[in-house]
């Protein structure tokens, strides 16, 4: 294990047992998050990013089930921890920022209450007034104007961007070691998106937390990430440092993704789309899952490739790069 590794995920599998069949939402994901870095998870809708992020603290609801795998957080397997211990980690060591701030906050409680409550949940001594005071302080840090008044506001009285700041405030309330941000900007408009990303990066610097940022926005990836893991159909297909990934994408899927958006580092004549669509997660293609859509598919692709390191820190799972 790398000395600066904070979280290591090994062969994580989360299946949903539905009437239509077994949905293999996460099917053998392995990745690691280093201390103080921002790791981006990129992939199309439905590729298992969100489910994977929630499975890290075992927040998978039936019919979903974590089938196998290990999630080593500072060397402790979270998947084997009793629920009570896990609860101490959620919101304190590992915290979440949800996609839709409009629904993440309980409409019957004030913004400040959410933060204060999260502080109190993980501290045995603090009084509510102290926690409230801290909450107001955190509101100031996440650049909420007039924090005293905003803390007393109810979620419906705040704008979307403000609500997302409140959600971020609850996430950083206990200075966690890992913040998992699940598409934190998708529900916001573009100008607010940039502010929120800037905020997340600033908080990472301040608390030296690690951030796992889930997104499908490659612009965001290029802007804030240190490392990137590309997911496709429940698996990580490529993992690399951000410059490396943008200049030298190896997996045909990553190449396709990059050609589908304007790339600031390369001049592209016209944007191309990836043919076909995400495979049916119940009835996955044999071998490499991307092979039916892959322009380079050849006879090897009916066997499943493994994720192997090709150059330092650059991992890919594709038969094109074997031998």
């Amino acid at each position: 294990m790398h000395s600066s590794t904070l979280l290591e995920v090994k062969d994580l599998r989360v299946y949903f047992y539905t009437y239509a069949g077994v949905v293999k939402a996460v099917d053998g994901v392995s990745l690691s998050v280093h201390r103080g870095e921002i790791l981006c998870i990129v992939g199309e809708t439905g590729c298992g990013k969100s489910v994977m992020s929630r499975a890290l603290t075992r927040m998978v609801k039936p019919p979903g089930r974590i089938v196998s795998g290990e999630v080593l957080f500072e060397g402790v397997d979270l998947l084997k921890l009793p629920e009570k211990e896990l609860r101490k980690i959620r919101g304190r060591e590992i915290s979440y920022v949800y996609q839709d701030p409009g629904n993440a906050l309980d409409p019957l409680y004030t913004a400040g209450f959410h933060v204060a409550e999260t502080i109190l949940a993980h501290s045995s001594s603090a009084k509510f007034n102290e926690a409230w005071g801290k909450a107001v302080g955190i509101f100031r840090e996440v650049l909420i104007p007039d924090p005293e008044a905003k803390a007393k506001s109810y979620p419906h009285e705040l704008s979307g961007g403000m609500k997302q700041r409140v959600v971020i405030a609850t996430a950083v309330a206990n200075t966690p070691k890992l913040i998992i941000a699940d598409e934190p900007t998708t529900a916001l408009d573009v100008t607010i998106q940039a502010q929120v990303m800037e905020l997340i990066r600033g908080l990472r610097d301040k608390y030296s937390s690690s951030v796992m940022l889930i997104t499908h926005n490659l612009g965001v990836v290029a802007e804030v990430c240190d490392r990137v893991a590309v997911m496709y159909a429940g698996k990580v297909v490529e993992e690399a440092f951000v410059e490396e990934l943008f200049t030298n994408p190896l997996h045909p899927y990553t190449q396709g993704l990059l050609e589908a958006v304007p790339n600031p580092l390369k001049k592209i004549e016209r944007l191309r789309s990836i043919h076909g669509s995400v495979p049916n997660m119940i009835d996955l293609p044999e071998g490499c899952r991307f092979s039916p859509r892959c322009p380079h598919a050849f006879q090897f692709c009916n066997k499943e490739p493994e994720l192997v390191e090709r150059s330092k820190g650059h991992l890919v799972s594709c038969w094109l790069y074997r031998r």
Partner: peptide, 19 residues
Amino acid sequence: EFMDFAEARGLNSFKFYRH
């Protein structure tokens, strides 16, 4: 989603059921 988020914040049973 806010109950999910309440769980993600690691609230104990009392705080969770209050919501």
